[in-house]
């Protein structure tokens, strides 16, 4: 797993992918932060979290789309699958590499917290909780992206499908069918709905369980997908 993690990280930072992702994310998030700070006169970072999530949904496929699609297109998966490593090690190595790039981009927003702490008035608990929610959200998005990348050998298809799925899951809480049961189910699967308590400063166990279990589910599906391909 370590070898794969190292190679993926090297790949993110020897090609432009990692830098572009982190750079564009920092630019956009800082833009929204300064607007919040100077125009709306709000000295906290929790307000920009929903915006960060939207930016993340638009940018994260850039780092997840290549994870397996590229291996298949370049036939380098032959090396991985004929080496004495388990499929789970391959998947986890790749997942943690992409997740680490996401964490670096998240860490790059920490200066905003210091700025807000100096000139604004931030609630530590609320900030911490919203960051926890944001990281869990990112963990799930990365897993969804990785799974979709396992389905195809075309990176563009992987990215577009990831947009489709994540945007649907994000905005599904806006859907209103009028039928209580259907709305309840849709809301249950909404990745934004579960983040609301975090942004209010509450680390709800149910939210943590939701994000972690769905992340785990998508990692498991990715492993199954890679294993099942050999049987076709």
């Amino acid at each position: 797993m370590k070898a794969i993690f190292k190679r993926e990280m090297l790949s993110y930072f020897t090609t432009m992918t990692g830098y572009v992702f982190i750079g564009v994310f920092m630019f956009l998030s800082s833009l929204f932060f300064s607007m919040e700070m100077f125009k709306n006169r709000v000295g906290s970072v929790t307000g920009i979290m929903p915006m960060c999530m939207v930016i993340l949904m638009l940018l994260l496929p850039i780092i997840t789309m290549r994870l397996f699609a590229e291996e298949k297109a370049e036939k380098t998966d032959q090396l991985l699958l004929t080496a004495p490593v388990k499929v789970s090690e391959i998947i986890l190595g790749k997942y943690f590499a992409a997740f680490s790039v996401f964490l670096i981009s998240t860490a790059a927003t920490l200066p905003y917290v210091f700025v807000a702490a100096i000139w604004g008035d931030i609630a530590i608990g609320e900030t911490f909780a919203s960051y926890a929610g944001y990281v869990l959200f990112g963990a799930l998005l990365t897993a969804i992206g990785l799974f979709i990348s396992c389905l195809t050998e075309n990176q563009v298809v992987a990215a577009v499908l990831t947009y489709g799925v994540t945007l649907l899951l994000f905005f599904s809480s806006w859907l209103n069918t009028g039928i209580w049961a259907v709305d309840y189910i849709i809301r249950f699967f909404s990745i934004s709905e579960w983040n609301e308590s975090f942004s209010m400063g509450v680390i709800a166990p149910s939210g943590v369980v939701y994000y972690l279990s769905f992340t785990f589910l998508f990692l498991l599906l990715s492993m199954r997908q890679i294993e099942s391909r050999r049987w076709r």
Partner: peptide
Amino acid sequence: GYLPEQPPLYKEM
């Protein structure tokens, strides 16, 4: 040790 028909190379390395 396996050398497939198309060598599995990571070209950016």
